[in-house]
Simulated assay, not measured.
Amino acid sequence: MNTTPATTDQTVPPDAVTIVPAAPGPVPLRNPEGMWAFVITTVGLTAPGAGGRPTDPDPDPARTDIASLFAGAWLPAPPPATLNRGDVVVRLASPADLDRTRVDVEVLAAHEDEWRSVRIPPALDTRWPHHVATTVLSWMRALADEAARTVTRQAFTTTLGTGSAHLGPRPDAPDALATLIDAGLLAVGDRLRWNGNTATVCHGGALAHGTEPHELCTSAVSTLATNLATPVTVNGRHLWRHPREGRTLAQLRAGLASNRHPH
């Protein structure tokens, strides 16, 4: 596989590969054989300003190392978007002129009930991670923020005693864990762990960090992980691990998808 091994950085999952930092040679220009896309688990930008974005409002990727860290995992097939809401992937394809030194990079986000193409920059070279890093980060943050708003609304309506089914997160709400709870793969009160941190699973799929009381469960999976991983942005489903099961949330989710859609 034309990628470098993962680093020892705790924001990069052990089974992920790191594309940046890397020498130009190992940067892939095509998906490996049999792989559908590269799901981004970790992205960091250089010269971060407010919000983790470069201080230059219009950086030129051709001359600037926009990405300080770009890592993820290859997916052999497109997973159900409804179960993978909040994920952002890149797909590498041959450009129209079939130039083997160039690549068309499609960025897709699992949003609503579909994999939505959000950008397709054509004919890039091995610096393509720097061209798409800000797009990837922006979508990861936006989807995580959407999930955080959903679980926060659920927490407050429940606390006030005004919660109802239509106010809470749907079972497949982005980043929420309600689907895994409903499937019996997680339970309210379970403790998730990552990098010395603990998060408690709450009603509706929210998380409580550390010793926070359960009525203040207003964190979502990737939002909490990114807050702990700052300045990089992470996909928390590939980091939080169920200590009893020994698997990450992404692995639990993949098992659920396999059971629902057997090959």
Rank of each mutant, 00 (worst) to 15 (best):
A148Q: 12
R153Y: 06
R153C: 03
V132F: 10
W139R: 07
T126M: 11
Q154M: 10
T126Y: 12
A144Q: 01
G163I: 04
R127E: 05
H131P: 00
S164D: 13
H130N: 12
M140K: 13
G161S: 03
T152F: 05
D125P: 03
H131A: 11
V132M: 08
S164Q: 14
S138M: 01
A148P: 00
D145K: 06
A165R: 12
R149T: 11
G161T: 01
A148R: 12
T134V: 15
G163L: 02
A155L: 04
A148V: 07
A133V: 03
A147F: 00
P129G: 09
H130V: 02
V132N: 05
S164M: 10
R153V: 01
G161H: 02
D145I: 01
L160C: 03
P129C: 01
L137V: 04
M140Q: 13
R153G: 07
E146M: 06
A144Y: 04
W128Q: 05
R149K: 12
A123V: 11
T157D: 08
A165M: 08
A133C: 05
A123S: 13
T152N: 04
R141P: 01
D145Q: 04
L143A: 05
S164T: 14
P122W: 04
A147K: 02
T158N: 14
A155V: 06
S138N: 14
T159D: 10
A142L: 15
A165F: 07
T157S: 13
G161R: 02
A148G: 07
H130C: 06
T150G: 15
W139V: 03
A155T: 04
A147V: 01
P129Q: 05
R153W: 07
T158L: 14
W139T: 04
S164Y: 07
A144S: 14
G163T: 05
A142V: 08
D125S: 11
G163C: 06
V136F: 08
H130F: 08
G161I: 00
L143M: 12
E146F: 02
L137K: 15
L160Q: 09
A155S: 08
L124N: 01
R141A: 13
F156M: 11
F156V: 14
L137T: 12
L143I: 06
T134A: 12
T162F: 14
G163F: 11
P129E: 03
M140G: 09
R153T: 11
A133L: 07
T162S: 15
R149M: 12
M140A: 09
W128Y: 10
T150H: 14
T162Y: 13
T162C: 11
H131K: 07
L137S: 09
R149W: 13
L124M: 00
P122L: 01
T134W: 01
